[in-house]
Simulated scan of single mutants.
Amino acid sequence: DPKLKVVLKEFPVLGPSSVEAAQVGVAVRMQDPSGKKYLDFHQKLLNGKGQADKARSMAAARDAGADMARLEKDLTSPEVRATLEESFKLAEAMGMNGTPSYVIGKQVVIGAVGVETLREKIGIARCGKATC
């Protein structure tokens, strides 16, 4: 859908390993103005097996073409920390408590609701009915 704007926010809610993976994600995004490596990183991480932790995240970042020396340096940067804090504040303000979560128009949708439900919510946001 070329009219759909997708904004991915790191929101680590599954414990310390999730926080580590999110830190890697933010650091990858910091070195990728186009967002292509960042998207590739997430696809590699989410399509892999096992829990998203630092080791798997670093492997996905390497496979996506990240500058690993810079990534290691950026992991503990104030920018990474501030980005994650901002995500938590935003999620709290919107009543989000888990992932995946979506903001579609003025509605917050929490959970893996499926593609058809997302399409319906997008239609409602666009034209007031499930199918425009």
Rank of each mutant, 00 (worst) to 15 (best):
G95Q: 00
A93G: 02
E85Y: 14
D63P: 02
A91L: 12
M96H: 02
L71T: 01
K73W: 06
V80T: 02
A93D: 06
A69V: 08
S57F: 10
R62Q: 12
P78Q: 14
F88A: 13
E85R: 09
A66T: 05
R62A: 04
A93M: 07
V80I: 08
M96R: 01
L71M: 06
A66R: 12
K89S: 05
P78I: 13
E92M: 12
E86I: 03
M58N: 06
T83K: 13
D67M: 12
A59M: 08
A59D: 01
E72I: 03
N97A: 03
D63Q: 11
T76N: 15
G95A: 00
L90K: 06
F88L: 15
S57K: 06
L84V: 07
T83E: 14
V80F: 03
G95N: 04
D74Q: 06
A69P: 14
T76V: 14
F88E: 12
D63W: 09
R70D: 12
M94Q: 12
A61R: 06
S77N: 00
M94I: 00
S87I: 04
R81K: 15
E79M: 05
A69F: 13
A59N: 02
F88T: 09
A61D: 02
R81E: 10
E92S: 14
A69H: 13
E72F: 07
A91C: 14
A64W: 12
E72V: 10
M96E: 06
A61E: 05
E85F: 13
A64P: 03
D74P: 01
E86C: 04
N97E: 11
L75S: 02
G65D: 01
G95F: 03
F88R: 08
A93T: 02
A69Y: 13
M68P: 09
L84S: 09
A91Y: 08
L71H: 05
F88Q: 12
A61T: 04
A66I: 10
L84K: 05
M96G: 01
G65Q: 05
A61V: 03
A69S: 14
